[in-house]
């Protein structure tokens, strides 16, 4: 008997509590969806008739567009809601939004929100599938999944690889999701950045900590360079962007000192000349554009795997599949 295939549950809120099998299922499912994006007609009817709402409480162009492509290529009907906080308090808006979505019988919600836990909050209150497109500083699971896929494509595997997350780890949901995904799939994970931007207790999660970028470069097979936000300087976590570039910037000169060709990744959008040098971002070892391509495929896989499906008819379907 083949073992039962892993399923994903109703929502995708984060990688922290997922099993390695579930993560691999998503990555494996993303492969055929890459091919769909190469076709002349980039559309399959898999999610035809499904209504998906992109509920973005934080401005985001690239993630939202990526999800929109994924949804449309699956033939779903999409609605974009940009709910920026007005005079209404953020918490109030979220509860009422949940109730309204429930009342409209939306099939799936993709949510990005400035509060950690918002995706789970929503998922616990509505029957629709909820996909976390970034909640506060907590997780950004589809980003980490496309990062994992990109690494796997480039290196053929994830297990045993040395991956270092560089930059503002404290405020980064991308870093947290990557940390979970990479450790679950057997990679060695490190973080590197100024101590002011390092979260408490990170070592207890099985992660190496490098205080200098030179140490990270000496160690890593892959660098995932995180975006440094301007407000970190304004809030006093670092003295200036210039100093950050001088001390922590990923530059060709620093990379040359490594014995290996280090794969360079960045979730985007990039601050060229702050966390990453343009020559590195555009260089031969950068897979940043592949990340974007894989983003659509991964999101299609997630939507496909979460949508609909009733377990009790699985056997009937298996029998029917041999026609």
């Amino acid at each position: 008997m083949t073992p039962p295939s892993p399923t994903l549950g109703k929502d995708l809120t984060g990688l922290e509590h997922m099993t390695p099998e579930q993560i691999r299922l998503i990555l494996d499912t993303a492969e055929p969806f890459k091919e769909v994006s190469e076709r002349p007609i980039k559309k399959v009817p898999a999610l035809r008739g499904k209504t998906i709402v992109n509920l973005f409480f934080e401005a985001s162009t690239r993630t939202r567009i990526s999800f929109e492509f994924a949804e449309k290529r699956l033939s779903a009907d999409t609605v974009n809601v940009a709910a920026t906080g007005s005079s209404v308090s953020k918490g109030e808006t979220l509860v009422d939004t949940a109730r309204n979505l429930e009342a409209m019988r939306i099939d799936m919600v993709v949510i990005r929100h400035p509060s950690s836990g918002a995706a789970e909050f929503l998922g616990n209150r509505i029957a629709s599938n909820v996909i976390n497109a970034g909640d506060g500083k907590h997780e950004h699971p589809t980003q980490a999944l496309l990062d994992l896929l990109t690494i796997r494509d480039k290196h053929g595997k994830i297990e045993g690889l040395k991956v270092c997350l560089v930059g503002d780890v404290l405020h980064s949901r991308v870093a947290r999701s990557n940390l979970w995904g990479l450790t679950k799939l057997g990679a060695e994970v490190a973080v590197c950045g100024p101590w002011t931007l390092m979260p408490r207790g990170i070592e207890e999660l099985g992660v190496k900590v490098f205080g200098r970028i030179e140490e990270a470069i000496e160690w890593a097979d892959v660098l995932n360079v995180l975006r440094l936000q301007l407000e970190r300087m304004e809030k006093g976590f670092i003295p200036s962007l210039r100093e950050y570039y001088r001390v922590f910037g990923v530059t060709p000169e620093r990379l040359e000192r490594s014995p290996r060709a280090i794969t360079i990744m960045h979730p985007g959008p990039m601050n060229r000349g702050v966390e990453i040098d343009s020559r590195v971002a555009d260089g031969p070892h950068s897979v940043i554009l592949d990340q974007v391509t894989n983003g659509v495929a991964v999101r299609m896989a997630v939507l496909y795997l979460l949508a609909g499906g009733r377990a009790e008819l699985a056997d009937a379907a298996k029998r029917g599949a041999s026609e």
């Binding site: 039962p4 008819l313 056997d315 379907a317």
Partner: peptide, 9 residues
């Protein structure tokens, strides 16, 4: 696709 349980590979 709607009624099939775990999504087919």
């Amino acid at each position: 696709l709607e009624t099939v349980g775990p999504k087919p590979v």
